[in-house]
């Protein structure tokens, strides 16, 4: 390791390193970033939820979008697996069904970035209590 020579050096190194612990920072204040829950019960996994989750993590990372992607249990939409719930800061969560990687990309581009609604929103059949 070369010595850090001045303050701007230090700031640059900090920016480079920040990604390493970003996940931890975001989990400290999940309400301020996009939260995505991927239903990963048996039916979800069988329908490819794992690939969708990996895709979401990589894609959001690549686009430098602050988000927390968590796996959760069965959300109750077994007919529409894989399902994901997306909660943007300050908004009500939306649940999307039949999400493959293509659909996931669309959700990121249209809903998360531009705020447009996309096909495939499932009617909410539950309320979350915090």
């Amino acid at each position: 390791m070369n010595k850090i020579k001045n303050l701007s050096d230090l700031r640059k190194i900090k920016d480079d390193l920040q990604n390493k612990i970003k996940l931890r920072e975001n989990s400290n204040s999940p309400e301020s970033v996009v939260q995505i829950k991927v239903g990963m019960a048996t039916s979800g996994i069988a329908s490819g939820a794992k690939e969708v989750m990996s895709f979401l993590i990589d894609e959001l990372d690549r686009r430098k979008i602050d988000a927390v992607v968590t796996q959760v249990g069965d959300m109750g939409y077994c007919y529409a697996e894989p399902t994901i719930e997306v909660k943007k800061p300050g908004q009500d969560p939306l649940v999307f069904g039949y999400v493959n990687t293509e659909k996931a990309k669309e959700i990121i581009e249209k809903y998360i970035i531009n705020g447009e609604l996309v096909e495939g929103i499932l009617p909410a059949n539950y309320q979350s209590i915090d």
Binding site: I4, L7, L10, R11, I13, K14, L17, Q18, K20, I21
Partner: peptide
């Protein structure tokens, strides 16, 4: 309980040594 204490990089990533940098600057 948040960073690895034996890794200076995780400390720097958490704004570590920024205060010292400012004070010196």
């Amino acid at each position: 309980g948040f960073i690895n204490p034996e890794n200076i990089e995780e400390y720097i990533a958490r704004d570590g040594y920024a205060a010292l940098g400012d004070v010196l600057a």
